[in-house]
Design a protein around this nucleic acid. Structure first.
Lengths: 228, 228
DNA sequence: ACGCCTATATATAAAGG
DNA sequence: TCCTTTATATATAGGCG
C-alpha cells in the first residue's frame, strides 16, 4: 500500500516478509483495538510468526483473560472437537458420578435395613435387652419359639434321613459359651417354670456335620454366626 | 479515517456505530487475510456484534477448522485459565469418582457382612434350614439357648422391678403366628423329648409394655423384627 | 438499514541511514 | 535488523439516494 502495489501472494524475500509481518501486525492490532473501542464489541486477534511457533507474535486483547473470554465464546459453539471430547468426557464423568451416588444411596438404604436387623440379632445374642419392655420380650420369646421349631424340623429331617447320615455320636459337644449359657439358663426360675427338666435338655444330638457345611450362599464355613 | 478524524471512543450514535462496525470488520477481515497470505503465517480473528451474541459477526479464517487450529494452538499454552479450570474440574470429578467407588466398595463389603447375618437371621426365623448339617443345627440350638437366657434375664428383671411395672395381665397374648408356631412346635416329638410340658410353656407373662417401646436406637417402634 | 461516493485519514512498501 | 521517511495504496467517516 505504498510506493508500489504488491501482489497478494506470499512475499518471496525473507527480510521483506518479516518486515511486512511486523508492520501489518501492528496495524492489525491498532485496527482491532479501534474496532473494539469504537463499536464497543468483543473481538480477538491472534497472530503467529510461523506455523511452528508456540507463542503468538500478536494477541489482542492484550489482557489475556479478555482474549480468553472471546475465545471462550467462540469455542462455546458446537464445533471444536477437542472441546466436544472434553465436554463429553465431563458429561461422562458426571453421569458416572450420578450413578455412583445412586448406588451409594441404595446401598446405604440397604445397609440401614441390615443394620437394624443386625441390631436385633445383637439383642438376640444376648448383648442386652435393656430398653425392651415386656411386650418386646414376649414377642422375642415367640420368635425364639419359631426358630426353635425350625431347628426341630431340621433335626427331625436329619434324623429320618438315612441316606445322608454319617455318624451319630452319643453326646452333644457344644461350644463352651453355649454350655455356660445353658448353665445360667437352668438357674433361671422361669426356665424351670417353662417345663424344662434340669440336666437333660440337649442330649442325644450329634455335632457331626451330616450334610456338609454346604448351603450358605457365599461361603462362610466358619461359625454359624459371622462375627459382626 | 476520512472526511473527519474521529475520537477513539465508543461511537455514541447507534446507526453510525453499527455502520462503522460493518465497514471496519470487513477491513479487518481483508487485512488478516492479507497478513496471513503475504507473510505466510497463521492468524485468527474473531469479532462479535455484541457481548451477548452467540455467533461471531466475523471469523477468519473462514474455514472454521483452520481458525480452530490457530485457537487451539493459542489455547495449547499452559496459561489458559479455562483449560486449567477444565482440567481441574475433570481432576475434581475423577477424585470424586474414586471416593465414590471406595465408598461403594466399603458399603458393599459392609453389606455382604450384614446380608450374611441377615441370612442367618432368616434361617432363625424359620425360613429354612435346608443345607445345614447337624453340627450347624446344634450350634443354632445353642445360640437359641443363649438368646432364651437373655429373654429370661430380661423377664426376671422386669418381674423384680416394682417401680416400672404397670400391669400384669394373667394370660399371654401372643400373636397368631407365634401361637400357630407354638402349636406345631408342641407336636414335634423332639420338643417333648427336650422336656417341655405340653400346654403350659408360656403362661404367666404379660404382653404389656412395661418400660416402654423406648430403647431401640433409631426409632422403629413397630414389630420387634423389622421387615426384611 | 443498505450501498455508493469521495474527501481525507491511515497504513505501509520501498528506500535510505 | 531496526527506525525513519515518503510516496502511494487503502480504509473509511459522513453524506446522499
Amino acid at each position: 500500500m505504498a510506493r508500489n502495489k504488491i501482489k497478494l501472494v506470499r512475499i518471496a524475500n525473507d527480510a521483506s516478509r518479516r518486515a511486512t509481518l511486523k508492520k501489518r501486525k501492528n496495524g492489525m492490532m491498532k485496527k482491532v483495538r479501534e474496532l473494539s473501542t469504537l463499536c464497543d464489541v468483543p473481538a480477538c486477534l491472534v497472530v503467529y510468526a510461523s506455523p511452528t511457533d508456540r507463542d503468538p507474535v500478536a494477541v489482542w486483547p492484550e489482557n489475556r483473560a479478555e482474549a480468553e473470554r472471546v475465545m471462550e465464546r467462540f469455542r462455546g459453539q458446537p464445533a471444536m472437537e477437542r472441546d466436544r471430547r472434553m465436554l463429553n468426557q465431563e458429561a461422562f464423568l458426571r453421569q458416572r458420578m450420578t450413578k455412583s451416588k445412586e448406588q451409594i444411596k441404595k446401598l446405604d438404604r440397604e445397609n440401614r435395613q441390615l443394620e437394624l436387623t443386625n441390631y436385633t440379632l445383637g439383642c438376640l445374642k444376648g448383648e442386652g435387652l435393656d430398653g425392651f419392655g415386656m411386650e418386646d420380650v414376649t414377642e422375642l420369646l415367640g420368635l425364639l419359639e419359631v426358630k426353635a421349631k425350625a431347628v426341630g424340623d431340621r433335626i427331625e429331617y436329619l434324623r429320618r434321613s438315612r441316606d445322608v447320615v454319617v455318624a451319630v455320636p452319643p453326646t452333644v459337644r457344644m461350644n463352651v459359651g453355649v454350655q455356660a449359657a445353658m448353665e445360667e439358663w437352668r438357674r433361671q426360675e422361669w426356665f424351670m417354670e417353662m417345663g424344662f427338666q434340669t440336666g437333660e435338655s440337649l442330649s442325644g444330638f450329634s455335632n457331626n456335620n451330616i450334610v456338609g457345611t454346604s448351603g450358605v450362599g457365599g461361603g462362610w464355613s466358619g461359625g454359624f454366626f459371622p462375627s459382626l
